[in-house]
């Protein structure tokens, strides 16, 4: 658990794995990619190498619309690494139209204007040449 110390620390940088490389490559191009289970016919998130429905390693990557709605949210007052200048900031637990949930920062909205059920769409923040990180804004 982070402990809310004030000194500036860099925002943690994701290290893609063999499984997640497709996700981050898509993100770099401003696209949200999800794994799709061709047998169970459902999407799955977070990325892993096996279907949690069938136990098969046959998941396919698909780029999706990135539209969804806020299932829940929280407003962070004790920043984690790299977020010291942003407090308070809202984080959404987003239910995508494809039927998966994903956690992301809420941007272009005041934290106290975020509501459960609010329509949102994906956006990306550039962290480095290789990594663009997904977040969400009002749709």
């Amino acid at each position: 658990m982070s402990n809310g110390e004030r000194p500036r620390r860099p925002r943690p940088m994701p290290s893609p794995t063999q499984t997640t490389k497709f996700f981050w490559d898509a993100a770099k191009q401003g696209k949200l990619a999800l794994q799709y289970d061709p047998v169970a016919k459902v999407y799955q998130f977070w990325p892993r190498s096996i279907s949690v429905k069938t136990g098969k390693r046959n998941l396919e990557w698909r780029t999706v619309s990135g539209h969804g709605k806020v299932y829940s949210y929280t407003i962070t007052y004790v920043p984690t690494a790299g977020f010291e200048d942003k407090v308070p900031y809202a984080i959404g637990l987003i239910e995508l139209d494809e039927g998966v949930r994903i956690i992301g920062n809420m941007i272009n909205v005041k934290p106290d204007e975020v509501k459960v059920g609010m329509p949102v769409k994906v956006a990306f923040e550039r962290m480095s040449d290789d990594i663009s990180y997904f977040c969400f804004e009002p749709a």
Partner: peptide
């Protein structure tokens, strides 16, 4: 697991963040 890529970079406050989601949803 997912932590390095999909949790820590988001800026969520670990367990308090997760329970913040839970409380918001319960209240809804």
């Amino acid at each position: 697991c997912y932590r390095n890529e999909f949790w820590e970079p988001v800026g969520i406050q670990g367990p308090p963040g997760a329970f913040g989601f839970l409380m918001t949803r319960y209240a809804a």
